[in-house]
Nucleic acid binder design. Structure first.
Lengths: 222, 222
DNA sequence: GTTTAAATTTAAACATCGTTTAATTCTTGT
DNA sequence: ACAAGAATTAAACGATGTTTAAATTTAAAC
C-alpha cells in the first residue's frame, strides 16, 4: 500500500514521490486504455514510468490497488456530473445527465470503457468510498420520479421505489453494452435515453406521455 | 483441441476417452460452481479428475476451450427453454420464460451464476454456435411485441424493433445482477418480470395496461 | 562539512499458473 | 505375439504478480 507520509511535508523527497506516483497512475491509465486492465503488466508499467517494479508497490500498490485508485477518481468525477444534472423538467434532467456522461466518456473513450469493464468485474464500484456507489446513484432517479408524481407528470401508479431502479438499470445496461463494444457512444446516448423515457412513459399521464413519445420517436430515427 | 475421432467407433479406447472427457467436464463444472471460472486451476482439475494436465489438453483443451464447451451446452439448454415458452397471451409468454429460466437456474444455482459471469466476460455468448446468441434471443421479444400490436394489446406507437430489445435488456440486466449476487433467484424473477411488464406498459392500450399494472403491483408487494 | 539513521529504490528471486515437449505406456489390428 | 499408432505422463518453459534483502539516496544531527 502507499506510504502514509506521502507529501506530508514539502520536502524534496515527498515532492518527488508524489510526482512519481502521478507518473505511475498516468501511465497505468494509458496502458489500461490501450489493452484493458487484465492486460496491464506491472513490468510494462514500471518500464513506461521509468521505474522498477517494487517502487510501484511502494508508491501505489499492486494491480488491485492501482485499479482501486483509478476507479475512486472516476467515481468522484461521476458524482460531480450527476450533481450538476439536477434540473427541471424531469425528462431534461435525465437527458442532461446522460449527455454529460457521454461527453465526459468521449474525452478518453478507450480509458473509460476499460475502466468500467474492470470496475464492474472487480466489484469495486460497490465498495467505492465506503457505502455502495450503486445505492448512491440510484437515489437520484427515485427522487426525480417522486417529484414527477408531485408535479402531475406521472400517475404514481408505480412507486418511485420501483420505477427509479428500473431507470437506473437502463443507464447501467446501456453503459455496459457500450463498454463491451456493442455500440459506440452515440449508441449509448440513444439506448440509455430511449430506455429511460420508456420507463417514464409506463407511468406517465397522457400529456407527459406524448412528450416522451416525441422524444423516443426522434431518437429512434435521427 | 479435442481429438477428432473421439468416440467415432465403439472401441474400448474411445469409450474410455469419452468417459474421461465427461469426468473432466463434470469436475470442471463443480469447480467453477465452487469458486468461479477464474479460480479454476488446470492442475486442480486434473487432480480432481484423477488425470494429469496434458490429458486434459488432449481430451478437451485449455481453459478457454473448457469454458467454450460448457457455455455451448448451456446455450443449447437456454434455447430449448425459450422455444417452449411461445404461448398466448403475450404477458404469459414472458412470465413463463422467466419462471422457466429461474427454475432451471435453481437446479445448480452456483454453477449457472459462475457460468454466466464467465460467459459474459469472455464474450463467448456472442460467438456461440456461429451467429451471435444475442441476435437470436432478442428475436423472440421483437416478434411477441409485433403480435401484441396485431392483437390490439399494444398501440404500436413504439416499434417492436425498439421495444423488443428493451424487454430483452430487462432480462439481461436482472440476470447479471443475480449472477453478481445483488439479489437471489426470487429477486431475479421479480426484477426481470417487473422490467418486462414496465416496458410493455409504456406502449399498452388501457385494458392491457391495467392487467400489467395488477401484475406489477402483486410483484412489488408479494 | 561530515556522519548517521531512516527511508526509498533496486536487482534478484519466489510462487503460481497456463501451456508445451519428449519420452513412456497402452490399445488395437494383423 | 507383435508392430504401429495413439494416449498418457513427467518434466520443463514462459509469463506474471509479488516479495525479500541489499544498495542507494535523502534528511537531519553534530
Amino acid at each position: 500500500m502507499a506510504v502514509e507520509t506521502l507529501g506530508s511535508r514539502e520536502s524534496t523527497r515527498s515532492k518527488n514521490m508524489a510526482k512519481r506516483r502521478e507518473t505511475i497512475l498516468r501511465e497505468a491509465r494509458t496502458l489500461i486504455a490501450d489493452e484493458g486492465f487484465e492486460a496491464l503488466k506491472i513490468r510494462d508499467l514500471a518500464a513506461r514510468a521509468g521505474l522498477t517494479v517494487p517502487t510501484i508497490y511502494n508508491l501505489v500498490g499492486g494491480k488491485n490497488e492501482i485499479l482501486a485508485v483509478i476507479i475512486e477518481e472516476m467515481v468522484v468525477q461521476l458524482r460531480a456530473i450527476q450533481n450538476a444534472a439536477d434540473i427541471d423538467p424531469v425528462e431534461e434532467s435525465f437527458a442532461k445527465l446522460i449527455n454529460d456522461l457521454a461527453d465526459h466518456f468521449a474525452t478518453d473513450e478507450a480509458f473509460f470503457r476499460a475502466a468500467f469493464i474492470a470496475g464492474d468485474r472487480s466489484g469495486l464500484f460497490e465498495q467505492s468510498s465506503g457505502e455502495g456507489i450503486f445505492a448512491h446513484f440510484v437515489q437520484q432517479p427515485i427522487e426525480a420520479c417522486a417529484r414527477a408524481v408531485e408535479e402531475g407528470l406521472l400517475r404514481g401508479q408505480i412507486s418511485p421505489a420501483v420505477l427509479g431502479p428500473q431507470i437506473y438499470g437502463c443507464y447501467r445496461l446501456a453503459r455496459q453494452d457500450w463498454a463491451n463494444g456493442y455500440f459506440d457512444l452515440d449508441g449509448f446516448r440513444k439506448q440509455a435515453l430511449i430506455g429511460v423515457f420508456l420507463c417514464l412513459a409506463s407511468d406517465a399521464k397522457p400529456a407527459f406521455r406524448e412528450r416522451l413519445m416525441d422524444r423516443i420517436a426522434s431518437l429512434s430515427n435521427g
